[in-house]
Amino acid sequence: MAVLQAADDGVLLRVRVQPRSRAERLDGVQGEQLRVRLSAPPVDGAANAACIALLAKTLGVSRSRVQIRTGAKGRDKVLYIADLTPEQAAAALGMTETETG
């Protein structure tokens, strides 16, 4: 699966989360995943909530439109973003066509 993939009325985004980072930021594409650095610890869903908030803000959508489909308890996650095309997501994330797969 590519970093971004079209899904039912939205996109799937593969990410690799690094919790307890110094700053919250997107760290570019590595392999077939977008690397996301978060300051939140991986405890009680704090890192998941921070990941959703950061991606929603970056993509310009509400947090309710971002859902974790797989990987809620791990670092590798697949997120679903409703009402967004892969092209819109790639543009908002600053990804090139070769990075999107």
Rank of each mutant, 00 (worst) to 15 (best):
M1Y: 01
A2S: 13
V3W: 07
V3I: 09
L4T: 05
Q5W: 09
Q5R: 15
D8Q: 12
G10H: 00
V11W: 00
V11D: 00
L12N: 06
L13Q: 13
Q18N: 12
Q18M: 14
Q18S: 14
P19W: 03
P19N: 02
R20W: 06
R22W: 13
A23D: 07
A23T: 04
D27K: 11
D27C: 11
G31P: 09
G31M: 12
E32R: 15
L34F: 11
L34E: 13
V36S: 00
V36G: 01
V36E: 01
L38I: 13
S39C: 04
S39D: 01
A40G: 07
A40P: 09
P41H: 07
P41S: 10
V43P: 01
V43Y: 09
D44A: 12
D44P: 00
G45M: 02
G45P: 00
A46Q: 15
A46T: 08
A46S: 04
A47C: 01
N48M: 09
A49T: 11
A49W: 04
A49G: 08
A49K: 10
A50P: 03
I52A: 08
I52L: 12
A53E: 15
L54Q: 06
L54W: 08
L59S: 08
L59R: 05
S62H: 07
S62M: 04
R63M: 12
R63D: 14
V66A: 11
V66P: 11
V66R: 12
V66W: 12
Q67A: 15
Q67I: 02
R69S: 10
R69N: 09
A72E: 06
K73P: 00
G74A: 15
G74P: 12
G74H: 14
K77D: 11
K77V: 13
L79A: 03
L79K: 01
I81A: 06
D83I: 03
L84M: 15
T85N: 11
E87V: 14
Q88C: 03
Q88R: 13
A91R: 10
A91L: 03
G94D: 10
G94T: 04
M95L: 15
T96E: 04
T96I: 02
E97P: 01
E97K: 08
T98H: 14
E99C: 06
G101K: 08
